[in-house]
């Protein structure tokens, strides 16, 4: 999901997650209205990766990640061996098993973001919703998170995320929803939707799209803002 600040990207995500009620219309999961489904049920299908905020309690990474098992357990039970194995598996997949004992609050922003993704994956969802997963991250970490996103989607998980960088849509070879201030959003493949004209409508600045041929013959597209003089 791309679009200018204040256009309602996060609001839409929150509506899909059921944090806020839609003004009109409804959100459907398997053709059932989400507002009528129990939270536990939706949490087994939809994982949510929030923007990283600071926490004033010192949880270890394991303790944070295992909370993703909440939707699979009843109100009075506690995680058991089976849940731990799932955690183990996800930590390995994301390459963070070596820092499982470290405190979440002591991690860098990029590491915290990966832990949040791990927690959502432990829910074993079909759909992952991420609110600006690369904001507040340095350039290297942005690309690292993007690689994880691409890998997960190749493994069959649908991912919906918001971002401020159109380049990320090209890198992930993703479908795009491009929001405009006053008109309906455009939906389609990045290659079709992200044209200089549409980007100007969305962001109000002149943007050129450059195509670069890589050594292995693949093509990378990137947006270049025209700065003028």
């Amino acid at each position: 999901m791309l679009g200018p600040n204040g256009v309602g990207k996060t609001t839409l995500l929150k509506t899909i997650m059921g944090f806020i009620k839609p003004c009109s219309g409804s959100v459907l999961l398997d053709n059932k209205d989400l507002s009528g489904l129990p939270r536990k049920y939706t949490a087994r299908h939809i994982g949510y990766v929030p923007q990283v905020t600071c926490h004033s309690f010192s949880f270890s990474i394991e303790e944070v990640v295992i909370m993703g098992r909440l939707p699979h357990l009843n109100a009075f039970s506690q995680p058991g061996n089976k849940d731990m194995l799932i955690v183990e598996d996800v930590l390995k997949k994301l390459n963070i098993e070596h820092m499982r004992k470290r405190f979440f609050s002591n991690l860098s922003g990029g590491e915290q973001q990966i832990v949040m993704i791990a927690r959502a994956l432990v829910q074993e969802p079909r759909l992952l919703i991420m609110d600006e997963p690369t904001s507040n991250l340095d350039f290297g970490n942005q690309i690292r998170i993007l690689k994880i996103i691409k890998q997960l989607s190749q493994n069959g998980i649908s991912i919906l995320f918001t971002t401020h960088f159109p380049d990320q849509a090209f890198l992930c070879d993703a479908k795009v929803i491009l929001f405009y201030k006053n008109t309906r959003p455009d939906i389609g493949d990045a290659a079709n939707i992200l044209s200089p004209v549409n980007l100007k409508r969305a962001y109000g600045i002149d943007i050129d799209i450059i195509t670069k041929k890589n050594a292995d013959g693949s093509i990378t597209k990137t947006c270049v803002p025209l700065f003028g003089v």
């Binding site: 049920y41 939706t42 087994r44 909440l70 939707p71 829910q123």
Partner: peptide, 8 residues
């Protein structure tokens, strides 16, 4: 919000 997303 995070609690809701975890099914609580």
């Amino acid at each position: 919000e995070e609690a809701l997303s975890l099914g609580v």
